[in-house]
Design a binder for these strands. Sequence first.
RNA 1: GCGAGAGUGGCGGAAUUGGCAGACGCGCCGGACUUAGGAUCCGGUCCUUCACGGGGUGGGGGUUCGAGUCCCCCCUUUCGCACCA
Length: 829
Amino acid sequence: MENIKVHKQYPFDEIEPRWQKYWEENKIYQTDLSRSENKLYCLMMFIYPSGDKMHIGHWYNYGVTDSWARYKRLRGYNVFEPMGYDSFGLPAENFALKTGVHPAVSTEQNIEYIRTQLKSIGAMFDWSKELATTDPEYYRWTQWLFIKLFENGLAYRKKAPVNWCPSCKTVLANEQVEEGLCERCDNEVTRRDLTQWFFKITAYADRLLEGHKKLDWPNKTITMQKNWIGRSEGCEIIFKATSTSADIPVFTTRADTIFGVTYMVLAPEHPLVKQITTSDQKQAVGEYIEQARKQSEIERTSTVKEKTGVFTGAYAENPMNGEKIPIWTADYVLMGYGTGAVMAVPGHDERDFEFAKKFNLPISEVIAPEGGNPEGELEEAYTEYGQMVNSGAYSGLGSEEGMRKVAEYLEKIGRGGATISYRLRDWLISRQRYWGVPIPIIRCPECGDVAVPEEELPVLLPKTDDFRPAGDGSSPLAKIPEFVETTCPECGGEAKRETETMDTFVDSTWYHLRFLDPEYAAGPFNPNIVDKWMPVDRYVGGSEHAVTHLMFARFINMFLYDEKYVKFEEPYPVLRHQGIITNSGAKMSKSHGNVVIPDDYIKIYGSDTFRAYLMFMGDYQEGGDWDDSGINGIHRFLGRVWRLVEPNCAGLAKREFPEFIKEQLEGIDKDVYIRLNKTIKKFGQDFETQKYNTAIASIMELLNTLYKALESSRLSTVFFFAIKKLLWLMAPITPHLAEELYHKSGFEGSIFNSHFPDYDEDATVGDQITMVVQVNGKVRASLDVDPDLSQEQFEELAFAEEGVNRHIEGKQIIKKIFIENKLLNIVVK
RNA sequence: GCGAGAGUGGCGGAAUUGGCAGACGCGCCGGACUUAGGAUCCGGUCCUUCACGGGGUGGGGGUUCGAGUCCCCCCUUUCGCACCA
């Protein structure tokens, strides 16, 4: 990179800053939000100012989406394109810890820096609507949101085994743990029992699933959310411990296998384990629980691991047949799903089968293949649906009917019934870190947890130099008595503030509402504008947020909808992801040290070239591996545009053009005219479907045709007409270059306040088309002919071709296939 | 293991959805202009063959007049999920 010496194709370094300044001074991108006709709220996931420079991924999202939005603007849309900072959170805080600078200061500096970088993109960001989640006037309303959830019973505190990252020294939501590793620092996550704040997203599980139907989102993203929510229809069955009579509910999707239960298993963390374990098994069980606790999530959930477990000494009674079965504890049962206990049916569940084999537990066969016979001795678990056997009065029923009947019976006797289970857990939102929104709760010994009154918001994050995480599960705020000591808003007695802060994902659940009027003081957002401008018309960001931000924001929005704060249920009806750009096949990340920073490229080539290259590289939704070897070609392309238009554009604005008619044009003029109209048409289609690479390729073809015109004749009216239209084709892709040439052509004001050219449909095809003649499917001739020839007319031409005759001579024609305007295939023998 | 994509020249990638495979660009080769070329402009560039031809879209089979595109099996690869009862 350092050694690259590139020929500067045109004075981008002079052009780009000049137009950025012009756009800013003339408020070209300040959207009039009082008008909502043709509104287009184009939102890109805002940025995390962590002290790092903007990387390629940001440019890929922001630059390319901006080009799309510019195209829409030229099409007459009133585009709103805001940008702001998701500035609370661990990366910012870790940067502060590393540099020793207070996060409030470093965040401010980082924002300053990132803003400069963002501006270098030359996007249509409406800087008058900039916001930062660390601004007290913003987080005041994040706290307001918390209180609303709290008042509605959707924010609550409970003690639970939670994910703890020893390196970040805080708890994490399930969604922030990837394969047992902390998504931020890649360290192993351990479990701790802590009392934490949760948002009751599970109350919205079905609504979140239902809402998917209304969303124009990538299928994959919807699937990820569906899997994450993990809705599963089944049956609750309440077993009873024989010694203590304690109820042990289990969840199963296969109630039809109930007669095949030969033992049951409780998760090691299950609270009943300690109660029911008999004294002679106490030691073994205790040791087992201890080792299970110490295991990491990775070891624990590995499917290849051999099953382990211990008998508790206790027994349970099967409610269907009164059978006594042993109760085991084993870590293949997870406390976090269902009831943390399962009925084991080794005959019809692979995991139970494996376990039963290892510990010599009985295996009984209660489902036979439909119409088939029982195996007698099972070699492996039979997990398909089938017909119930050895199941008392239920024998003979099909699986599905059996499940229904068993559930009905259990319900009648009060021992369970049909139910639905979800994988989704409530969202753990408290964090033991400094750099976040303080949870606005006061803990009173008399009144319990009391919300801070709205008029006292925001609860300001106290200034302190000791913001290091304690690591013992307490928040750094707990060390600040002036912050902690307070009085109860209800009884006036002495009370303490909650010292934990909120997960940053809470901040971004509602930022799209705030963007529309970030100064609004009477509430979290201005309802007049929100009603007109929401929902977001197009949302673009990384797919890594599928089950975090995107799901959380939907949940919160549904809550705001239910509480009648907003009139729409889905905040982001249309979502697109940019692809991921890798480096030598590996995901770019700081820990790999392979992050590509665009700054050097911008210096050498300019923003327009870099943006255009990102669009040209490949399929936008696919992404791809970073390879800068082609960037010169794009830079050359812009240079070719420059050299073609710049010397020829004087006075273009005032120049009158006749209405061209394809049939009346000849030679290169006709070629140029047809190519131009083809390109305008294709450009529009490709931009709508995000096929930016082929849109640019098509402009290149136009440009090649124009260079031919330049070479072959004196410059014609059509030529000037075409270079004028070219300005608009370039504008979304290379906004600075286009704006410069627009003004050099004598236009006033910004090209982005003008309108994209229409095309002449008649001239999008040549007046001759190419048809082929095949013999036995092989192309033997290719003819330029008038369109819409009949088979007879075309055959006459085809059989006159020497290349065709050579291949049919002396052979018998079996049949002829004629496809209008395409081909004639002659089948011979 | 399960699910969803993808596999096309030396490279990035096109192909109106079953109808001329390789658009456009990079790279490379040649020409022009030039003291010069790392600039620019023009031309060439899938493989093989002097040519006529022949072969060719991960591999194998199939459907069809015709398959990169549809169907079956296999391989590779990316992503997501992964003891979810």
